[in-house]
Lab assay of single mutants.
Amino acid sequence: TEDEKKIQELLKRANGDVSKAEKLAQSQGNEELARRLREYANK
């Protein structure tokens, strides 16, 4: 999905570090994506 692409892109930029990727999403003002990242990471 589009969200998964965004999540994978963020994870790439954060070198696979979920908490960093989450902070990136939040810094972009994207709380929804940050929440999805957390769920994605907890799979």
Score class of each variant (00 low, 15 high):
residue 26 Q to F: 09
residue 24 L to D: 06
residue 29 G to Q: 04
residue 7 I to E: 01
residue 33 L to Q: 01
residue 16 G to C: 15
residue 19 S to V: 12
residue 28 Q to L: 13
residue 14 A to L: 06
residue 23 K to R: 11
residue 36 R to S: 06
residue 2 E to R: 08
residue 27 S to N: 10
residue 36 R to W: 04
residue 28 Q to N: 07
residue 9 E to H: 03
residue 25 A to E: 01
residue 31 E to H: 14
residue 24 L to C: 06
residue 42 N to R: 10
residue 37 L to Q: 00
residue 28 Q to H: 07
residue 4 E to K: 08
residue 17 D to P: 00
residue 32 E to G: 07
residue 3 D to W: 15
residue 33 L to E: 02
residue 36 R to L: 15
residue 37 L to V: 11
residue 3 D to T: 12
residue 24 L to F: 06
residue 21 A to T: 00
residue 40 Y to N: 06
residue 16 G to R: 02
residue 31 E to D: 11
residue 29 G to K: 03
residue 24 L to T: 04
residue 3 D to H: 09
residue 22 E to N: 02
residue 37 L to C: 03
residue 6 K to D: 14
residue 40 Y to G: 05
residue 33 L to A: 04
residue 26 Q to G: 05
residue 18 V to D: 01
residue 30 N to G: 15
residue 2 E to I: 13
residue 31 E to L: 12
residue 26 Q to K: 12
residue 28 Q to K: 04
residue 19 S to G: 10
residue 2 E to P: 10
residue 5 K to T: 08
residue 27 S to Y: 07
residue 35 R to N: 06
residue 23 K to L: 10
residue 17 D to R: 02
residue 2 E to Q: 10
residue 33 L to Y: 03
residue 21 A to H: 00
residue 25 A to F: 02
residue 33 L to K: 00
residue 8 Q to L: 14
residue 20 K to S: 05
residue 32 E to F: 05
residue 42 N to L: 08
residue 37 L to K: 00
residue 23 K to Y: 09
residue 43 K to Y: 10
residue 1 T to Q: 11
residue 40 Y to T: 07
residue 15 N to M: 08
residue 34 A to N: 01
residue 37 L to D: 01
residue 28 Q to I: 11
residue 7 I to Y: 05
residue 15 N to L: 09
residue 43 K to R: 09
residue 21 A to M: 03
residue 32 E to W: 07
residue 37 L to R: 00
residue 7 I to H: 01
residue 8 Q to I: 15
residue 2 E to H: 09
residue 4 E to N: 09
residue 32 E to L: 06
residue 9 E to C: 12
residue 11 L to Q: 02
residue 41 A to I: 14
residue 7 I to A: 03
residue 6 K to R: 11
residue 29 G to T: 02
residue 14 A to M: 10
residue 7 I to Q: 01
residue 12 K to F: 06
residue 11 L to I: 14
residue 25 A to M: 03
residue 18 V to H: 06
residue 11 L to T: 02
residue 14 A to W: 05
residue 16 G to H: 06
